[in-house]
């Protein structure tokens, strides 16, 4: 696919940052507001789609390393499973950090409140782990499906060319 025009690329430069920050916000605040790892991860993975569409595959794939994404995905899944296994003294997936003080251990007041970020025990941890996994997984799917397009374009021998160059 060819890169889009300079207007699209300029707007993409601005909004890609907002997408990343908003996705990180949704992931980190998953236990006190609507959202969570899956939703925020999908928002952040949209950034990869935006960059691929606006800049074309040749430029983006020249500095994106899929090995980093693979490592991030394995790390997220391992942290998730480890956090599940660490509570096995009581049951599998027991929330052993909630209400203990310390990391993620604040006790929230009952009823409606304004929310405490340092609460919810392993739920916060699992939100971040799953968010990492979803970000890297969806980005990997997008990048590899984009790479698959060249299976069709290589036949005619076309190369990517922008509008204005």
């Amino acid at each position: 696919m060819n890169p889009l025009s300079v207007v699209v690329r300029t707007i993409c430069d601005i909004f890609a940052w907002f997408l990343g920050i908003f996705g990180a916000y949704v992931i980190i605040h998953g236990h006190i507001s609507p959202g969570g790892g899956f939703q925020g991860g999908a928002v952040v993975a949209t950034m990869a789609a935006l960059l691929l569409v606006a800049y074309g595959g040749k430029k983006v794939l020249s500095f994106v390393r899929p090995g980093i994404y693979t490592g991030m995905e394995a790390t997220g899944l391992l942290v998730f499973i480890t956090a599940g296994f660490l509570g096995i003294g009581t049951t599998f997936f027991y929330n052993f950090l909630a209400g203990q003080g310390g990391l993620f251990g604040s006790v929230v007041p009952l009823g409606p409140n304004s929310g405490i970020l340092n609460s919810a025990g392993t739920i916060s941890l699992m939100n971040m782990a799953v968010g990492l996994e979803v970000v890297s997984g969806l980005s990997l799917i997008l990048i590899y499906m984009f790479k698959g397009i060249r299976l069709f374009e290589g036949r005619e021998g076309r190369s990517e060319r922008g509008h204005d160059r």
Partner: peptide, 11 residues
């Protein structure tokens, strides 16, 4: 309402 207690009005 949504099952979220953060800044909820009537629960």
């Amino acid at each position: 309402s949504v099952p979220i207690f953060t800044l909820a009005g009537d629960v």
